[in-house]
Design a protein around this nucleic acid. Structure first.
Lengths: 185, 185
DNA sequence: CCCTGAAGCGTACGAACGTACACTCTCGCG
DNA sequence: CGCGAGAGTGTACGTTCGTACGCTTCAGGG
């Protein structure tokens, strides 16, 4: 076609198509051609806008963490006190584990990359940092850290379990971790 | 070469090479040829022993879960009472998060597959079931479920964190989740 | 109105891929 | 000893891949 026109949306559409493809078919099936077809752009656009698949993946997961951090912000930012924060955490866990399959899959893909390549760990660090900022508004730093890990585990197990646990169990776990005084054993 | 001899170790070596390759380079870079080179077997062996990459992956991750469940058994099976169980859980979290990079990466790869394809979820179900069997020897079922999720989250966050938390924090989180009586908030 | 530089595209090439299948080799039976 | 059967292999085919690069198109200056 060669429109000769600058098209600033082109990059974004390619990135969106990349995330869709990864979510549906996995990193293993990502290729320039498949992304181009999905995005409705010519193959030549791929190398024109991105130096290679690696750069494309980094950008795509950058967009994804922006999105997922926004979800965290939406749920945790509104909480006014501890109890609201606890409820928000439970809502978040249930949203992430039974909401769009897309976010769940992309999260796992990102963790997989992060587990192997430090470059992607920057993204997960930022994500963890941002979620802790919210949690530390209501809980001390150690508790926030534990709670953050608990959110991760509950979300994953709930998403993968044959019979996902109910909201009551989520809330109980959150309450236990955020209860700072000593109980007997 | 065509030795004409049955070689029962051949399959196992291929599976081991597959796991090594996945751990080091990721699912995206798995191919018959690369596995064959790594395993020191001719290309023709690949299709002779396995109907295709899919079957190979299923078998490989089956071996991996056998291994990882054995690690769970080793840590949790020996605990004689609640406090030993708590300590074992902490040991397990720290072993998984700072032990071999290999197990960590393979775990994430498996979760990624499980998040997208139900077939792989069978493997994670069995894994979760087995770990709960151990935990339920010392804790009630709801607590075991929460603790199992906590283990997952603590392990992952510890493995990916810029500054991993110490054992004290792990133990505190475990204690909180396994403390069954009510504390004030 | 023409010219030019930037923006963007189509295509071709070499490498790597999965798979099929004709083939070689050895063991054990007769 | 000879030979059939089955285990295991080498190779060749069609496909798909990433990438390079010459080409087309058009906005804006002269």
């Amino acid at each position: 076609m060669a429109t000769g026109h600058t098209d600033p949306q082109r990059r974004e559409r390619i990135i969106a198509a990349t995330l869709d493809l990864i979510a549906e078919e996995g990193i293993a099936r990502v290729s320039h051609r498949r992304i181009a077809t999905r995005a409705g752009v010519p193959l030549g656009s791929m190398t024109y806008h991105f130096s290679g698949i690696e750069e494309l993946l980094r950008e795509a997961f950058g967009r994804f963490t922006d999105h997922i951090v926004a979800v965290f912000d939406a749920y945790l930012g509104a909480a006014a006190d501890r109890d609201e924060a606890r409820a928000a955490v439970a809502d978040l866990v249930h949203e992430l584990s039974e909401g769009s399959q897309r976010d769940l899959v992309l999260t796992q893909e990102l963790y997989t990359l992060a587990a192997r390549e430090p470059a992607y760990r920057e993204l997960t660090h930022e994500w963890m940092r941002r979620s802790r900022v919210h949690l530390e508004k209501h809980f001390d730093p150690d508790t926030a850290r534990q709670l953050d890990a608990l959110i991760e585990g509950l979300t994953l197990h709930r998403a993968l379990a044959r019979e996902p646990h109910g909201r009551a169990l989520t809330l109980e776990a959150v309450a236990r971790v955020t209860t700072t005084d000593r109980g007997s054993h």
